[in-house]
Structure formats: C-alpha cells, structure tokens
C-alpha cells in the first residue's frame, strides 16, 4: 500500500522515528487489537491506538454510558449517556481516525463466546474491572497463545504487565485464583482518581504498539506498579509458576471457567 498525502501527514511523527518509519506504520495499519472494556483503561488505550493508526480495533463492553463514567472514560461524552459504550467508543475513534475500523461487541464476554471473538486479533488489551473477566481473558489468551496487556486500577494505584503466553508469566502465575468475595472492597466502595486510568491505559497502549512493531522492551515478567498519590513507579520481577493451573507444566485448566461476579454492579 502507498500512503495518501493525508496519511503521510497524520503519521509523519511516526515515520520520522527510525524505530517506526513507513514500514512500522504500515505494520500498525495492518494490525488488530481487541480491547476488553471501553471504560477507564480501554478508553485512553483505544484513543491512542486509533491515533497511532492500528487498523482494526475490536471493543467489547456490555454497558451503557453513565454520568459516573465521564470523570475518566474519555471516549464518551455527556451526549452519550444511556447509549452503549461500545458504540460511543466506535463513534469517537472513527471520528479521530477514519483509517481505523472499530468493531463493537455489546455482549458480555463469557467462556462460550470469548475464544471465537478474540481469535483473529493480534494482541488483547484487558481493561476489565472485575475478576471473572480478568481470569477469563487471561485463560483464553494462554490457550490461544495471544499476547495480552493486563492493566488494573484501584483508588490511586495501578498496575500493568505484558503477558506473552509460553514466554513469560501469566496472570494466574501471579494470582492463581480470584480472591474470595469479601476480600476485595465492593465496587461502590472503591473510588478511583480520574486521571489514574489514563496513565495506566496509555502505558498498556504503549506496550501494545511496541508489541505490534516488534521493537523495544516489554513488561514481560515484570509488574509495573504506579502510585498516583505518592507519584512513584515501581517494577517488580514476576516469574512463571511451573505449577500454574493454566500455563504450567501440567495445566489443570483446559477449558474456560466462568467465575461468579462478586459485585453485582457493573461499571
């Protein structure tokens, strides 16, 4: 493909970079990313991936936009309240960059549908806000050997890691099973600083762009912890667990599990 005059301008700051160039930009345009959630993490991540010219973005979110989302979920506007998040996200992203095809999914992901939905995407970006989805996405990515960017946030703190199944630890190597209900504050109690998911989601998008380009160092085997309150970043090494139930030597999880939602309120 040849770049149009508009594309040369749009992507010029990428093309100038020796690590990207026209070839890297074409790679991005031919790539696909599946985003789990169009919320606090998915919105900033998707916004930058669309701006970067990632050619195809799948976005799954079963919820409608609510006023309480607008403090951090930057793809949605006041006029979108009551409208499905996946569609609101699509409209914002395609307005930003017509080179990007956005495929919205308005059903909740579950053990029945996830494999089929994500199997043709290059990379998965998890921006989900609950443990059942997080474990479902991790297990599906391990079974499909899909690179996965994990991000999560809580109040003033966030964490990011990049999971390359077979090469580095997965989410279950870190936390084998979901915490028991009651261990985690319920969704209503938690609260989050609005800018926090912006930082974490954009770090996830950064990891995904490098993965697609095949350049730079990734957070493989590393968990990046960010505290917005103290403004500290910390990196901790994480290792594969040979006894990991999904990616270990003798995996016991060979098919997907639907854990029960502990919090009935979906954001």
């Amino acid at each position: 493909m040849d770049f149009s005059e508009e594309q040369i301008k749009r992507y010029s700051r990428h093309i100038i970079l020796p690590e990207v160039g026209g070839r890297g930009q074409k790679k991005l345009l031919q790539s696909s990313v599946f985003l789990v959630g169009a919320g606090g993490l998915g919105c900033p991540a998707a916004y930058y991936l669309a701006a970067a010219g990632v050619g195809k973005l799948g976005i799954a979110d079963g919820d409608d936009v609510d006023h309480s989302n607008l403090q951090r979920q930057i793809l949605h506007s006041t006029k979108d309240v009551g409208y499905p998040k996946a569609l609101s996200a699509k409209a914002t992203l395609e307005a930003l960059n017509p080179d990007v095809e956005v495929i919205p999914f308005m059903h909740r992901l579950n053990s029945e549908n996830i494999m089929d939905i994500i199997k043709d995407y290059d990379v998965i970006l998890d921006g989900s806000d609950n443990f059942p989805t997080r474990y479902l996405v991790n297990d599906a990515c391990v079974l499909l050997k899909k690179p996965l960017s994990h991000g999560s946030i809580f109040r003033f703190e966030g964490q990011v890691t990049t999971i390359l199944p077979g090469e580095g630890p997965c989410y279950r190597c870190l936390f084998e099973t979901p915490p028991p209900p009651g261990m985690v504050p319920s969704c209503q109690e938690a609260g989050v600083l609005g800018v926090l998911p912006g930082v974490i989601g954009v770090i996830q998008a950064t990891e995904v762009v490098k993965l697609l380009l095949g350049k730079g160092q990734l957070l493989k085997g590393q968990l990046l912890l960010y505290n917005a309150f103290t403004m500290e970043f910390k990196k901790v090494k994480i290792r594969r667990n040979p006894q990991c139930p999904v990616c270990g030597e003798n995996p016991t999880i060979k098919e997907l599990v639907d854990y029960q939602e502990f919090c009935q309120v979906h954001f």
């Binding site: 770049f3 301008k9 010029s12 093309i15 100038i16 160039g21 026209g22 070839r23």
Partner: peptide, 13 residues
C-alpha cells in the same frame, strides 16, 4: 519540513 524528510525517507524505504 518535516515532510521533505518524511517523503525522502519513504522513497528510500
């Protein structure tokens, strides 16, 4: 600039 360089680079690629 920078399109003079951008287009030169693209041509060389």
């Amino acid at each position: 600039c920078p399109y003079t360089f951008v287009k030169t680079k693209l041509a060389l690629e």
